[in-house]
Amino acid sequence: MHAIEFRDVDFSYGEGGFRINKLNFTVEEGEFVAVLGHNGSGKSTLARLANGILEADGGTITVFDTPLNDKNLYEVRKQVGVVFQNPDNQTVASIVEDDVAFGAENVGTPREEIGRRIGFALSAVGMEEYRHATVARLSGGQKQRVAIAGVLALKPRVMILDESTAMLDPRGRREIVDVVLSLNKKEKITVVLITHFMEEALLADRAVVMNRGEIVMQGAPAEIFRRHEELLTYNLALPRIGEISKRLREGGLDVSDTLDPDTLAEDIAKCVS
């Protein structure tokens, strides 16, 4: 089943602004999709459309076979959770559990059930011991995990992360990536990870490259990163390792275009001995 399907979706931010034309895009249930693109390529618009925060000008957006419209907006939002970029701008409460409860409270979940969901959501992101902590004292990665838990408390089937790692330090980024992977594998939640860190995209089942509101490349991440020249035309850099192996090949070393340092070392070792 399609978790999310965009069919001929049009959207524009008004005259002269950014626009999306006849966009077609699907995410399968259980899939982990990475969406890449330089700043301003339209990837964040995608997230806001899928969750009904922005309304499409034309075409249809379908979430688990339900076409998104004004009437079922909240039903759809329950299914499609979005985590945003800035860890400080997503929390409404000062205490972790109060914030995680917010979404579940909004949809009228009974009290006991909210308590259970807070427990589930916080343990899914590895933050159980911070249940009564003050949000302001957490690190960026921890705040972002609380934001994910807040979305999880709504029991969504799809989780969209809109550059949620962009403002974090490497440790925070790792925390989020680990959480996302486990949600996808263990909880079977469909994940759409919007990012400009190429290394994160490597973990996905499928990578999608956006440029000027269009999807210009899609496929297995390793396969996408093989198409160096094409990526460059969309203002995307190769992951550093791709660049190194490419330069080594140009220098006459017969290494594969792997994206794993260990495999690259293996290849180098083979070539020189």
């Binding site: 925060i53 909240y74 939002r77 959770g81 979005v82 945003f84 909004n106 807040g150 979305v151 709504l154």
Partner: peptide, 9 residues
């Protein structure tokens, strides 16, 4: 946006 996304009505 974040509140909307968490079904605030």
């Amino acid at each position: 946006d974040a509140m909307d996304a968490r079904c605030y009505m």
